[in-house]
Design a protein around this nucleic acid. Sequence first.
DNA 1: CTATACAACGCAACCGGTTGCGTAAACCGG
DNA 2: CCGGTTTACGCAACCGGTTGCGTTGTATAG
Lengths: 344, 344
Amino acid sequence: MINVKKEGKLTIRDIAALAGVSAGTVSRTMNGQAGVGQETRQRIQQIIEEHRFQVDPTARMLSTGRSQTLAVVFPLHASEVVMHPIYPALIGALGDAAERAGYDILLLTQSAEKAAHVVDTVTRRRVDGVVLPAAGPRDPLIKQLTGIGAPTVLIGHRTNREGVGWVDSDHDSAAHDLTRLMLDTGRRELVLLNGPAHVSACKLRSAGFWKCVQAAGDAVTSAREIRVPFDTDAATAEALKILGDPSRPTGVVCGSDTIAAGVMDAAHSLGLRVPDDVAVTGFDDRSFAARTTPTLTTVRMPLDDIGRTAAQMLFAMISGGPAPRKVILPTEIILRGSTPARED
Amino acid sequence: MINVKKEGKLTIRDIAALAGVSAGTVSRTMNGQAGVGQETRQRIQQIIEEHRFQVDPTARMLSTGRSQTLAVVFPLHASEVVMHPIYPALIGALGDAAERAGYDILLLTQSAEKAAHVVDTVTRRRVDGVVLPAAGPRDPLIKQLTGIGAPTVLIGHRTNREGVGWVDSDHDSAAHDLTRLMLDTGRRELVLLNGPAHVSACKLRSAGFWKCVQAAGDAVTSAREIRVPFDTDAATAEALKILGDPSRPTGVVCGSDTIAAGVMDAAHSLGLRVPDDVAVTGFDDRSFAARTTPTLTTVRMPLDDIGRTAAQMLFAMISGGPAPRKVILPTEIILRGSTPARED
DNA sequence: CTATACAACGCAACCGGTTGCGTAAACCGG
DNA sequence: CCGGTTTACGCAACCGGTTGCGTTGTATAG
């Protein structure tokens, strides 16, 4: 019969015994606390190293109350939000940063509008910090989380609420630069076909667009902004009206790739050429942006940076240290076929 | 209302005191164990209900060794795998199912090829079960996880390895049905432009394709299979050769939407009409599939079902109960413009 | 050469449930 | 009415670290 040796996990007391000290001393050593002699400390660390000893996070959690865990909340309702393909990259970067810092990340699903389960789990699991990658700035969950003292950071939304940090892309500058691109390539009749007004990113994009238009002065003949849902069909319908008009724009800056796709559909069905008759830009660099006809000039979000920054912000908040609580990260314009080449 | 001593969390001993019993009895009551009188049990449950008492999972974990936690592993290398947009939906369904069963899910990122950190975290955190949504059937991580006795299920890959379950889509039938669709709409010269041979899904799709061709007998004039990477440009190059030949196929079944996109590009540049001159189908129903010209007929995976099934399979494995360990779920064909309408 | 201050470390009581074991009371057939 | 079970429950020892406090031993001041 095969002798199955129960490899008993070593406990802190085993290490203590090997080192000829008490468990408390080992604990202090591992946590870098004072009260341990120099050579004793070295001997203990040596033994820990040799035996590959690792603290049991559960036991530690029970006595300290800290879990070395971050949570990220997935809203299951609003599936159109979650299905947005930015999430895998975002979460990957977040997880990577967390791992490096010795944290694990808990994936919470927020079903329906119920924040209760999330708050509940955060307290029960003693989660150290929470990332909300898909919550609006007015989401009641935020209040509840700060209410229980959980460090919280929003992604993609900005807020002035006390005690909550956020990291967002620079929508403002991105929209500004796209508009500038239109002007630089000779487009003087502009339309911003933006997403819904209640989406904060859209407000910022609006601001960037108008800032550029104002600064351009006579270089722009006409400019206006229209709101549509983030829906290709709705965008097509609206674009048919806009582009069917004799005073049609020669450049359309869109609030998302899905809207831009709708505009290009409309242009095609009206017999207009893109970008010759009308230039089009999107937002997000969705996968289909490289596959439209023509390919779509758009804006790519710095997802890796966002994830990493969110994690670091949380660590700072947890340790109470000073650190920026509001971060805006630069975006990248992806030049493709839906805009004319810039004249250099 | 009864005055609770320390404002804050009640412990099991507080409940015991209120009920006039010992902590052990409360514990037995909560876990449905025998050894508690009928009326005592009711009284205790009543009090638990009243005070909204909830067990501390950390403490329970420490003494039982079980964590009520599932882990899902994200490989960070092979970003093209993780970036595949099926993940958000998959993970959403998984999380939802886990939540309903009172489990939480831990998100592990597997950096580089290092399985060590994953195994490490699984043991340290006492994870009850692991989902591998992006691991090949030969991934060494599988061996290591089963080695430490962690219930493991694969998603999207099949294996005969002892002690590991899997759930996959019915690629075989899907490919068969697409091929059947080609034949039913009068396409007799077929090509399967499949993905790499080492991808198990591609093997299954190959099998389905050939099964249909064999069964069709004289209904098919020619049929062949070609392998390309999951890359639109590579697919375009290959498709230019295939479609440029005088004996070009009238139907091309593709191993992915990205490949199909490449084929349609090639067709357009050769002046061939889709689907009139050549019908094309994809796989996955990526977001851009609804936005190609023409829109792409493709196959949608049952992501919700897959997630839910994986969770349930893990629960069964954890409790040691009997349950199917190998599940194949049916897919759905999304009919769009790249194939002719079926003659009914 | 004492008195005082510290540094180094052991002890034991936590953290909040779980569980084996012991015991008193209730129940049973004879 | 009695011995033998069964049932209901309390007790206390865990699970594996952490930490306040008390006790040494030694360095420094007076």
